[in-house]
Nucleic acid binder design. Structure first.
Lengths: 155, 155
DNA sequence: GCTTGATCTGGAGCTGGCTCCAGGATGCAG
DNA sequence: CTGCATCCTGGAGCCAGCTCCAGATCAAGC
């Protein structure tokens, strides 16, 4: 059976991405542009399928396309480089988790205040957001996570 | 002491944001454009300072500007609406935390495989990202196949 | 009076990761 | 042969949330 040439459309289907995504990856250098057929169509090696899948999986782990470009470079070099990048990413993820946990705590406190606040016309959430010093809780020990909390935001 | 009019620059300082941010908030309707002085300068009410701080604090809790527009509307209405929005956001945050925790787990496993993998030329992280079925955790099978490795990194 | 700095309008540019479009050439099925 | 799908190039648009710019006007300090 003669295989049909792996054109961009078929590649896209095989790798489960949009054709435009492939073109985009070419533009930014994540995929090398292949030779063209006589008719001017790009014909891909089937290994590109794996490369695209690699990219997509790495994205799911929180790597940016730039990160991934480095990963792919390192992949040709030594394991240590890759592991190092993974460790950096792991640390970033852990910071994100902490920030979000702190946000969650604040939101929970605000919501519970709201529930217990009776029928006051003055919403404790709105109040808290308006006040000069943001409180994270009315229960004691609220100040502890204030720093993590601010680190969640980029001005 | 006669107060100088609260122009956009002084407002920006007071609220600790960029002048352009205020203009932007006006453009998208988060801040109502105030009347202008005879010279054509906008003069703000000091309450706008609180409004901007509100916005900034809500952003730190993960609300988008659109969310915040709703919050500000609701704030003028009833507490229940605000609490509901906070609860929705809380759920979103919790999903994000779970996702990140799962990513963290995967990364940790990959890194530890890498550490125990000895001096294999074949990086288990790269392999794992290349394989057809993404594994999220496993200790065995970190050895095999050089083909996947090259197929992701070559093209 | 001159200089510096703040303000105005409006529009463009930035980041990341796509996604879409126009207009033309080609491949394939009926 | 016709018609539609697919391909090409190149450039624009989209999201959010700003940020910056040009060129004009105006205010405040020395």
């Amino acid at each position: 059976m003669t295989q049909r040439p792996l054109t961009i459309g078929r590649l896209a289907k095989a790798a489960e991405v949009n054709v435009e995504t492939i073109r985009y990856y070419q533009r930014v250098g994540l995929i090398v542009e292949p030779l063209k057929s006589l008719e001017g169509f790009r014909v891909y090696s089937s290994e590109v399928i794996n490369r695209i899948r690699f990219i997509k999986r790495a994205q799911k782990l929180g790597f940016s396309l730039q990160d991934i470009a480095h990963l792919l470079e390192s992949g040709e070099g030594h394991c240590n480089d890759v592991r190092e990048q993974a460790e950096v990413k792991l640390k970033q993820i852990e910071v994100q988790i902490k920030d979000l946990q702190s946000i969650r705590k604040t939101l929970k406190n605000l919501i519970s205040e709201c529930n217990t606040g009776g029928e006051s016309e003055c919403c404790p959430i709105v109040q808290s957001l308006t006040e000069n010093s943001a409180r994270t809780s009315t229960k004691k020990g609220a100040g502890a996570n204030r720093q993590d909390f601010t680190s969640a935001t980029k001005y």
